[in-house]
Structure formats: C-alpha cells, structure tokens
C-alpha cells in the first residue's frame, strides 16, 4: 500500500478520486485551492471532467446539473464561497441530488480571515439555505480520515439521494500527514430509477421542487423529514475513556486533536476524563452523549467559534448533565495546556 505525505485538502481530492468522482466544479478561494488544483491535474487523465466556474454560484449549479444525471460529482470551497452556494444547497436537497460539497472553512463573519475556524458549524448542520432540509455532514480529524470520509460521503449521498458536506478547516486542509492510500470499498447505489439520462424507452422524467397543488408541498416535506430520520442510523462518534469518567470533554474536527492531547494530559495526572468526538455533525450522534450523561457527569464542549456545537450537546443530554462551553473565536489556536487548565477547573467545581 502506497503512503503519501499530503495536505488535508489533497487527501480530500484523493478520497474523491478513490470514490470514482467523475466531475469537479469549483472557484478559487483560500485555503482549499489544492483540491481544484489536484482535480485539474488528475480528473481529465481518468476521463473525468474538471471545470473552473465563474463563481461559486455557477460551480454549485454545475454540480446540480451533473448530479441530476446520476454522475458522481463534487465541489469545494471555503466559508464565504459556501455562503454564496446556499440558495442552491436548498435546491440540491429539494431535488434529492447525491452531490458532495467540501467546506475547508476559515474565520468569519464577512471576509474574516484565512485561519482555522469552526464558525460554520451552524451553517453546515442547519442547512444554510431556505426551507426545512438538512445535509449529511461529516467532519474529519486527520488526513487519513479526510480521505476516507470523502469517499464515504459519495456512497452515503447516493444511498440517501442526498447532498453530503465535508466540514473541515484551514488547519486540517493545510497541514501535512502521512496518508495510506487504502483501497476503499464503500458501496455504490443504483441511480437508474431517478437520474436524468434521456427518456430512452420510458416517459420523460422531472426533477423539480415546485409543488403548488393542495397538500403537495406538505407531503414533500414529510417525505424529506422521514429520510432525515432514516439517516440517523449513520451517526458516528469516537469515544475514549468512557469507563468511570467524571468529566466528558467533547470537540470535533481538527481542534479535537488538541483537545484529545489535553485529555491525555489530564488522564496522565490521574483525572478520569472521557473524550468524545462526533464524526457526523448531522445526524448528530445524540446516543453516546445521552448515555454518558446518564451518570450526571458534566460535559465540556470545546470549539473554535463562539459556541455552536454546544447547543446540540445541550439538546442531546437534555438537562441530565451540566454542559460547559469553552468557546474560542478564531485567531490563535489554543495549546493543550490551555484546555487542560479548563478541564481542571471543571473537575474542581464538582
């Protein structure tokens, strides 16, 4: 098996290629340009399509067109570009198109900055566009996982006829780690019964989201909601040291690496602290949170934003435990020691 030293953004592109992504559409924005650049080099060689669009708006609509024909397709961008795509996200969800979108997020609001940030958690998990809909949201914590989750995203998107979003950030996107190019075997799902491929030997098909008849839109919404319920079985989380824990520290994505180091420090000093990392942000893995809250242990939610995932943790534990927030707005990354000090304070409050 080949091992490469690559950036997170490159690992995402390689994961897409491993999943046989056939079309990539995108527009340049820092810090994710390695994705389109790798795709521009590699996709045409494999008979695929790389096209640089005139804007993120055009890119996501090219994605809509390509995905509507049942072909595996993706786009990527960073926070402001993702905002620009938001209207079409709503259409992708409404048309039930299996498209993959990557957000290598940066600091906001506005032009913000190009440093690592998790400020797009709400945008990713609440939908960003109009109407009642959700994306599947996956968040890797390592370069290996970025590769594998991207490939998995294509499979899940096809399984549920549903857009899937990879939420990562400038830190993971730009840092390098060894990547083992494992052969990935996530299943493919048939597209023949819905994709627009020309009405050969069948009546014409329509992919639409306009429903004006009495009760039609309600039925449509309920259908989507049933699908989102069914998607709950895809919830995934990484749990460490749950046994006998007196505090649960939780974080997602690249920051979880620093948080995990702080947890290890605490444990070395004899503090029984658990580590919980959601891998899917939607569906949010409520179950391990609920289970860990049964004993009433407090939670500490650490995020590189002003406190967003903490709301989902509070909903999951539903008042059974105290939930504290260590919200770190973007600029500087915390050191493990900063988080370790907060862990000790939390434990002292017991």
């Amino acid at each position: 098996m080949k091992t490469l030293l690559v950036k997170g953004s490159e690992a995402i592109a390689l994961g897409a290629l491993a999943a046989d992504c056939r079309c990539y559409f995108g527009y340049p924005i820092t810090p994710q340009n390695e994705i389109p650049e790798l795709m521009a080099r590699e996709l045409p060689k494999r008979g695929g399509v790389f096209l640089q669009a005139e804007s993120e708006l055009a890119a996501v609509n090219m994605l809509l067109g390509a995905a509507s024909t049942g072909v595996r397709a993706m786009t990527s961008s960073s926070s402001p570009g993702i905002s620009l795509m938001a209207e079409t996200f709503s259409y992708l969800a409404a048309l039930e198109l299996p498209a993959v979108i990557v957000n290598v997020s940066r600091g906001g609001p506005g032009l913000g900055g190009i440093e690592a940030s998790q400020g797009d958690y709400f945008q990713a998990t609440r939908g960003a566009g109009h109407g009642d809909y959700h994306f599947l949201v996956l968040s890797p914590a390592s370069i290996q996982e970025a590769y594998e989750l991207t490939a998995r995203a294509f499979s899940l998107a096809e399984k549920y006829r549903q857009p899937a979003l990879i939420l990562t950030d400038a830190l993971l996107g730009q840092m390098k780690e060894p990547l083992r190019l494992r052969r990935l075997r996530f299943p493919r799902y048939p597209v023949e019964d819905w994709a627009l491929t020309g009405a050969r030997g069948r009546p014409g098909r329509t992919l639409r989201s306009l429903f004006l008849g009495p009760g039609e839109l309600r039925a449509r919404n309920l259908l989507l909601q049933r699908k989102y319920q069914a998607m709950r079985r895809e919830a995934r989380a990484e749990i460490l040291y749950a046994e006998g824990a007196e505090l649960v520290v939780t974080a997602f994505g690249s920051l979880s690496r620093i948080v995990r180091e702080a947890v290890e420090m605490a444990r070395e000093k004899g503090y029984p602290v658990a580590f919980l990392r959601p891998i899917t942000l939607f569906p949010f893995p409520d179950r391990p949170y609920r289970k860990l809250a049964e004993g009433g242990q407090p939670f500490l939610v650490v995020e590189l934003n002003c406190g967003q995932m903490v709301e989902d943790v509070r909903l999951a534990v539903c008042g059974r435990s105290r939930v504290e927030s260590l919200a770190l707005p973007p600029s500087d990354l915390p050191a493990p020691e900063d988080i370790y000090r907060r862990i000790r304070r939390c434990l002292a409050q017991r």
Binding site: R22, C23, F25, V49, L51, A53, L57, A58, A59, N61, M62, L63, L64, G65, A66, A67, S68, T69, V71, A73, E87, T88, Y91, L95, L196, T197, G198, A199, P203, G204, R205, T206, L207, R208, S209, L210
Partner: peptide
C-alpha cells in the same frame, strides 16, 4: 415528455453546463 430539471433563478446555463459536461 422528455427529461427536465429545474434550476434556481438565473442558473439555467450553469446547470445545463454541468449536465452536458457530465453526459
């Protein structure tokens, strides 16, 4: 009676581009 996709307001040529490039 043909295959038809709905595009967001103004984005028809981008959606058409994606479909044509894909197939």
């Amino acid at each position: 009676d043909i295959d038809i996709c709905e595009a967001p307001h103004g984005r028809a040529c981008a959606a058409a581009t994606g479909a044509k490039r894909a197939r």
